[in-house]
Nucleic acid binder design. Structure first.
Lengths: 340, 340
DNA sequence: TTGGATACCGCAAACGTTTGCGGTATCGTT
DNA sequence: AACGATACCGCAAACGTTTGCGGTATCCAA
């Protein structure tokens, strides 16, 4: 119950706490002999320094905060896994919060993490987040911040993203090459940069190929299965279906998939489908879902690495990098070439 | 950069830090008037108490540690989501670590969390974990611990689990009722209590119905898709397939599913399949996977609640409860009645 | 023998809180 | 008018570290 502190250890050894502290951190002022004695005693008595006390003194902890919209979403949990991986390797631990896609909770989360004096912050903003004073606040306090996936572009931080524009563009080109012409898009919220990029990629790809965009087929919604279902609902009410649909991510693609099947629509004969993410389910549905793979795990790893860079290079201020990770269009059955 | 501390706030108000501290925590010794003044000033200057300092003084932090085998696994990420949920509601934050299914890393994780003076610990042990001195150590230090899903039974802690025995038993009964006779089981590791229970449920169900267990169809492995594939591989090498297979979880079931399909085996005509968890993919594959649903989110919530109980009831030591959550067999296409 | 390096080590303050104890007004009672 | 309650509030120590500064041996050179 009671702690075994550095003082106890010092007493056992007949030296001062300062000496123990310095010995443990390999300070040159301490003789090799005492260092050895201290190390052995620490081992023997299972002494582990109190991180809390250390943090208070150093004015910074060795934990990094992570905020995501939803932990349970496969994409984010994979990112978190990547983050934890490199954090662990560097002796950091992570504090994870979810905003549940609300701004209110996102700012509460950042406050909580800042109050816990995290060394740095990793965040993918919620769909509601259109102001970022809470994040500017974090930066103003000197807490390094790096954004990933869903980023607030105006904010001067390191970012790790994918080339949403290009990925969407290529996905649409693939559909066109496969013989589809009347191509729709289930988008997310316009405020999200990611969405704007994907949408623009979609539009440009059509335009560059002399195809018109039927605005009725460009439907905005959210990021979940139900949003995919809802979008299909609107199409069905319309009484007219596109040839193909580019969904903003896999969950909405899957939602659309299911609803279309329920309605007796054949995939891809009647309408082709492509998603974003390559969720585990994507390869398993029948026909398998064509989707652009996002390296979620790698995204977590590099985001964490970027943050650690800033943490160690403290003082010599590093410039903000934004690294864009490569994606990969994984062509599967849901976009089989027309007439094949 | 520099902190705005309680001293600064006190100076602005012309009172002592003690008064501010007490005012903030609604101490009866402070007049309503000063409390109001303090509250307003705190608001105005954006004062947030330094949790680190608080923790040091209180000798306990308001963060709870979570250790799971793998964050990215759907089941665990959902549990974590539930944990975060109730932690958030109670003003706690969570530190998440993954053991990657290794004991070594699991003990490192516990040490890191203890060094961070977490208020309590939530854990699902790794498959390698057959000793628990590291957990006993945690308990000895007076840190409350509650186990979930994968538990070390001999350890006297609160636990939240499902009735693995009964769930497996009922799943097998369902298969029998559906006309299947030669039923196999893809199990996990014998050291894991969960596995033993499911296996026993499987065996007893067979026995109770006068069915013999063909030991060649009882295959041990891991918990991932590849393990499911591997198990099927062994069956194929055997040159003989069971009527039906109860998989230890959904990933294994899915792995088996895919491999069986590759081999041209029809599901459920040639072999039926049932899993555990109800992963998102389960309902999406074709035929949809019959599976016993585990309330992952609820498991996270109740585990966290149990921990919080212990934290608040500090002193008046609470007894250890083990709550078993209800499961639900979700019958789908992969176990369609024989001949139907 | 003296002087200055050099090698080790300890004192004490500090990090930002909380809290036991004591202190000073103010008030109501007698 | 004096006295005990009562209501508020401040002092200072403590939580477990780290670290600047100073101090004491020891040693080598002169």
């Amino acid at each position: 119950m009671a702690q075994f502190t550095i003082k106890d250890l010092a007493r056992k050894l007949g030296v001062s706490p300062s000496t123990v502290s310095r010995a443990l951190s390999d300070h040159p002022d301490i003789s090799p002999a005492t260092k050895r004695r201290v190390a052995e005693a620490a081992q023997k008595y299972h002494y582990h320094p109190n991180q809390i006390a250390q943090s208070l003194q150093k004015k910074r902890s060795s934990t990094i905060g992570v905020i995501v919209p939803e932990i349970r979403h496969n994409f984010f949990s994979t990112v978190i896994s990547g983050i934890e991986e490199v954090a662990y390797e560097s002796g950091y631990t992570i504090m994870v919060c979810q905003s549940n896609e609300t701004l209110a909770r996102e700012v509460l989360n950042t406050q909580a993490l800042v109050a816990n004096r995290v060394a740095g912050l990793l965040i993918a903003i919620s769909t509601e987040t259109s102001r970022w004073d809470h994040l500017e606040n974090v930066l103003a306090r000197g807490v390094p911040l790096v954004q990933f996936d869903r980023v607030a572009e105006p904010l001067d931080t390191s970012k790790v993203v994918i080339d949403d524009y290009r990925a969407a563009y290529e996905a649409v080109v693939h559909l066109i090459d496969s013989g589809y012409r009347r191509i729709g898009h289930f988008s997310g919220r316009e405020v999200i940069a990611m969405d704007r990029h994907r949408c623009r990629g979609y539009l440009d790809a059509l335009a560059d190929h002399g195809l018109a965009c039927d605005r009725r087929f460009l439907i905005r919604g959210g990021y979940r299965e139900e949003d995919g279902r809802a979008a299909v609902e609107r199409l069905l009410a319309l009484g007219e279906l596109p040839d193909a649909i580019l969904a903003v991510n896999d969950p909405v693609a899957v939602g659309a998939f299911v609803r279309l099947k329920e309605a007796g629509v054949r995939i891809p004969e009647d309408v082709a489908l492509v998603g974003f993410s390559d969720t585990p389910a994507a390869a398993l549905i029948d026909p398998a879902l064509t989707t652009v793979y996002q390296p979620a795990f790698e995204m977590g790893r590099t985001a964490a690495s970027l943050l650690l860079e800033q943490l160690t290079a403290e003082g010599g201020s590093v410039e903000m990098k934004t690294v864009v990770l490569p994606t990969e269009l994984r062509v599967r059955g849901s976009s089989r070439p027309r007439g094949a």
